[in-house]
Amino acid sequence: MLEAVIANMNTFGRVAVCGATSEYTDISRGSLDLVNVIYKRIAIKGFLFTDFMIHHFPDFMAKTSNYLRTGELKVIEDISLGMESVPSAFVGLFNGSNVGKKIVSLIDEED
Rank of each mutant, 00 (worst) to 15 (best):
M1H: 01
A4P: 00
V5H: 05
V5G: 07
A7R: 13
M9I: 12
T11I: 11
T11R: 10
G13N: 06
G13K: 12
G13I: 07
R14M: 09
V15A: 10
A16K: 08
A16D: 09
V17D: 00
C18G: 03
S22I: 12
S22H: 09
S22R: 15
Y24Q: 14
D26Y: 06
S28N: 14
S28F: 00
R29G: 06
G30R: 15
G30F: 00
S31Y: 00
V35Q: 09
N36I: 01
N36G: 01
N36L: 02
I38Y: 02
I38S: 06
K40P: 00
R41H: 00
R41I: 02
A43V: 10
F47P: 02
F47I: 04
F47Y: 14
L48C: 02
F49T: 06
F49H: 03
M53E: 13
I54L: 08
F57N: 08
F57I: 10
P58K: 12
D59V: 07
F60Y: 14
M61K: 14
A62W: 01
A62G: 04
A62K: 14
K63R: 15
K63W: 09
K63F: 06
T64E: 04
S65A: 13
S65R: 10
N66C: 07
Y67S: 13
Y67C: 15
L68G: 06
T70I: 11
T70F: 02
G71I: 13
K74N: 12
K74R: 14
I76H: 08
E77K: 10
D78T: 13
I79G: 01
S80P: 00
S80N: 05
M83L: 14
E84T: 13
S85N: 09
V86Y: 09
P87Y: 09
S88W: 01
A89R: 08
V91N: 05
V91R: 14
G92K: 13
F94T: 11
N95H: 14
N95W: 02
N98R: 11
N98H: 15
N98L: 08
N98E: 08
N98M: 07
V99E: 04
K102C: 10
I103H: 03
V104F: 04
V104P: 01
V104G: 06
S105D: 08
D108E: 08
E110Y: 05
D111F: 05
